[in-house]
């Protein structure tokens, strides 16, 4: 239901409360406490860690408080390609997910309206993959795309893939995995906004001699924009920090590592917390700027 809330664009109710009641403030407290404890505290800790320096002659994973901006410099030195790759893969995955999800959501939300049972079944099918672990599903794709698989041998015999070509460990498989894994996050908000689409607007469009295409672009798309914006955000943000799909253990290889893989490996494998924290902070900053720009250009008032 959170998706429906994200996609909702109903603005009929008066949104400015007349007065701030004490009860409302009290009800807000648990939320604030939650944010303070589980968002602000870790964030402060992360920022502090990101400027730490190694303890002189210290052991693995030992760092001390400092103001060491060298950790940020290391990003520019070695890891800019990983940032770029993360951005590019996330944009591609968002684009393809939108391409696949919009017709799907349109069919479920508009065309299938006459058959509520079918609608329910289709929605369940969209959500069904969530019942199986995301890791298992990604591993299954790895098996499907492995070098000795039927898929690869068919592609090779059709000369679509060179005889020594691979699918796993390539940009293709990583973007494919990201797209596949985030399709439900794209479909559900778009569905939520299309489901409420008033078909009389479409009739009005054709009454006014608009072609179906122009009705679609000038009526349907703007009316479902809140869903598209939420869907792209729900896909782009997690996809850009993803470290599963691009990891060598799943669909990626050394050549496809994204910034999430670098952070994961520095945090959990070589215990270089400060550089890992610096990268997390930088990634967060970049995403905040991008998303703020995106939301500003697409118009927030329809969204919130």
């Amino acid at each position: 239901m959170a998706f429906a809330a994200l996609g909702s664009a109903t603005g009929t109710a008066d949104r400015t409360p007349l007065k701030t009641s004490r009860v409302a403030m009290l009800l807000l407290l648990p939320g604030l406490a939650y944010l303070l404890l589980f968002f602000l505290t870790p964030l402060v800790s992360l920022v502090v860690t990101s400027v730490e320096q190694p303890v002189p002659f210290g052991d693995v994973g030992q760092f001390q408080l400092a103001f060491n901006l060298q950790n940020y410099a290391e990003i520019g030195l070695h890891y800019l390609p990983h940032f770029a790759r993360a951005g590019l893969f996330a944009i591609l995955a968002t684009f393809f997910a939108l391409l696949i999800s919009y017709p799907l959501a349109y069919f479920i939300g508009v065309k299938a309206r006459r058959w509520p049972a079918l609608q329910a079944v289709l929605l369940t099918l969209v959500i069904a993959p969530f019942f199986v672990s995301f890791l298992l599903r990604t591993l299954a794709w790895k098996a499907i795309m492995s070098d000795d698989s039927t898929l690869v041998s068919v592609l090779r015999s059709l000369s679509i893939l060179p005889s020594d070509g691979h699918l796993t460990g390539t940009w293709f498989s990583v973007v494919f995995g990201l797209t596949y894994n985030f399709i439900p996050f794209m479909t559900l908000p778009i569905y939520a906004s299309l489901e409420r689409l008033d078909l009389r607007y479409l009739e009005a469009g054709s009454d006014l001699y608009a072609s179906p295409a122009s009705t679609f672009w000038r009526v349907t798309v703007p009316l479902s924009a809140p869903g598209i914006v939420s869907g792209t955000l729900l896909t782009f943000i997690p996809a850009s920090g993803d470290y599963i799909n691009a990891s060598s253990s799943f669909l990626g290889s050394v050549q496809t590592q994204m910034i999430g893989n670098v952070i994961q490996s520095k945090f959990l494998e070589t215990e270089q917390y400060p550089t890992a924290a610096a990268m997390s902070v930088a990634l967060m900053a970049v995403i905040v700027v991008l998303v703020a720009g995106y939301v500003a250009t697409t118009g927030t008032e329809d969204l919130l």
Partner: peptide, 11 residues
């Protein structure tokens, strides 16, 4: 280890 990891990450 840092060097080895750098190669693993393709950096």
């Amino acid at each position: 280890n840092a060097e080895f990891q750098r190669v693993q990450l393709g950096a």
